[in-house]
Design a protein around this nucleic acid. Structure first.
Lengths: 335, 335
DNA sequence: AGTAGCACTCGACATCGATGAGTGCCAGCA
DNA sequence: TGCTGGCACTCATCGATGTCGAGTGCTACT
């Protein structure tokens, strides 16, 4: 669809814009990247490419700004090239290996690290339930007909939520309920436990079956809302980027970062696909129109973990991807 | 120290600045607040007050900006006046009462609510340990010589941390250890448990005494770092305030919000004093030079809870205080 | 098809003057 | 002594104006 030369021009414009932060004109492209063509030729091609939706202009007679579509071409081309490792990778790995205090503080630390070295926003998420083996379920009576439900997952992740029962529960009733749920849940992921417990009535004891089902329903709604635990590190970093000097853009990004749900959705997609994902500008939802998000999955003892970087459209995709991959790698070693 | 008239002028300048966002000049003050005095008189007084450190000028011949010192006088004067309730208080109370899903999500919801109605940053913190009765202690083996330590506090707050032992532990050894710690800890706050378990050796069984002490030490360091669980809501709000159009200021605030430790320190002071605290501009640490923080303690079944608002120097102290107090009140009812 | 040249557009930047809010100071008045 | 009016001065803001340079579109030429 694109000629060889058109492709080169798109890549050059994107590259130059990422490098310098300023829209590239035909002269620059001709001098720096396509010495064989005169500026006038480039101009004609650029004009065509603008019609095709790869470039936009701030005003008649400014250089060309790449659109999301151009970035997409650029990123795809990066992905095909053999990736070289970043020199700083080793330092990062050392830093991560020296931390070993449980998955949650580790991930929180990693997001801050990612944010610091890239100057973008570091993101990490771990699936708190759906596909991770359950290690223990426990009820702590809170008085009256409510109790605290604790679920410990295999990697050491703890999920807790308040549940209420149709009637007051004595502590030993709760213990018995926990024992029954444990006998089913142990070593199984939630997705299985849910269906098994739903049919628990076959076991006989009507009373507990009923309680189990009600509890399961409450757990389920709570967990659907918080299926991923999301960590964010270094949101302040993007303030220093020239791309976010505009307060309105900042506001959009920050409001997204406070909406755990939206982030969880993006993470979910990456986790199920199991491959790196780069979503650029308009490919994202509303608030992230001006941003790109790079996400890489990490395989950690059965838990779905995802690391990511949120940066401006003109983020350094090549470096971001390298860093994320090497951090994900050392995370996998650590867990 | 200040004459009656000087005090009036200070209050008027602060009030006018909070209201309009622009430095007030002598003419305005004379016309709006001190009709009895001519602008010239006000000028002379203002000049004196500037020397005394209550005002500063952006440039020779701009109106006077109140300094932290002037805000302090203003806030002290507000506190003495009888406080009238805000009309929106009822709505807030209704909103809070309708939520009842455990302390953590409640606080998280409250911070967002505070942020939304005031356009400042809502803050909430709850002391996770030191002075709250412990309800249950539990170990979950994580394989090898490490385990997950779960501590459930009276209000339903869960604290968990990874602990490691000098040797591999069998699950039943861990259970026995938990049983022993529970027998001491149940119904007591951590501050007591710490000293009791430290002397646990008298009980006899050397092995467990040693394990207890080692565990205690690890819990202690972990808890010293995370003694308060801090919630933040609506950081995006301050972006729309004219006071934070300057990116540098924003950066300072955001970097503080990411530092849980610093916030915890402020909260701690408020919690132990048990009274409302307003810290203004320079009274705060470095990053908050341009901000004020209002904190109110809430008494919730033995747990130290603190609610707060972080806003610009010229925040509406009167309204902020009223809102915080009524929210704190309904929080106390809810728990 | 590719190139060179030329006119045109538009943002960035500096300059200039007018305006208006606000100050400091001084002399006069109760 | 304390207050007031008057006056000169300062400084930010705003709009008009002009210049500069980067970059384009178009046309004619090879």
């Amino acid at each position: 669809m694109l000629t060889e030369r058109q492709l080169e021009i798109v890549l050059a414009v994107v590259y130059e814009y990422i490098r310098s932060g300023e829209p590239a004109g035909s002269r620059t492209i001709s001098k720096k990247y396509l010495r064989g063509c005169s500026p006038a030729t480039i101009r004609n091609e650029m004009s065509d490419l603008e019609e095709l939706g790869f470039f936009s202009q701030l005003h008649m007679s400014s250089g060309r700004l790449p659109t999301s579509r151009a970035y997409r071409v650029y990123v795809d081309s990066i992905m095909q090239r053999k990736r070289q490792d970043v020199s700083e990778a080793d330092i990062l790995k050392g830093d991560i290996r020296s931390q070993k205090v449980g998955i949650e503080s580790l991930l929180s630390h990693v997001t801050q690290l990612l944010g610091r070295v890239t100057n973008y926003v570091g993101v990490a998420a771990v699936s708190s339930l759906e596909n991770t083996e359950i290690q223990k379920v426990n009820f702590i009576p809170l008085g009256g007909s409510t109790a605290l439900l604790l679920i410990v997952l295999k990697g050491g992740l703890v999920h807790h939520t308040n549940v209420s029962f149709p009637c007051d529960m004595r502590p030993d009733t709760l213990d018995e309920l926990a024992r029954r749920i444990n006998s089913v849940a142990l070593g199984r992921p939630w997705s299985q436990v849910r269906t098994i417990l739903h049919d628990y009535v076959v076991e006989g004891l009507e009373h507990y079956s009923e309680l189990c089902r009600s509890t399961i329903a409450q757990m389920d709604t709570s967990l659907r809302e918080h299926n991923y635990r999301v960590f964010i590190g270094g949101a302040k970093n993007i303030l220093s980027l020239p791309d976010f000097q505009d307060i309105a853009k900042l506001q959009a990004v920050l409001s997204l970062l406070e909406e755990e749900k939206a982030l969880a959705d993006m993470v979910e997609k990456c986790a199920v696909s199991g491959t790196m994902s780069v979503t650029i500008g308009e490919e994202n939802q509303e608030e992230l129109r001006e941003c790109s998000m790079v996400l890489v999955p990490a395989v950690t003892s059965g838990q779905r973990t995802v690391l990511g970087l949120l940066g401006p459209l003109r983020m350094d995709y090549e470096r971001s991807i390298s860093i994320l991959e090497s951090v994900a790698e050392s995370l996998e070693e650590s867990l």
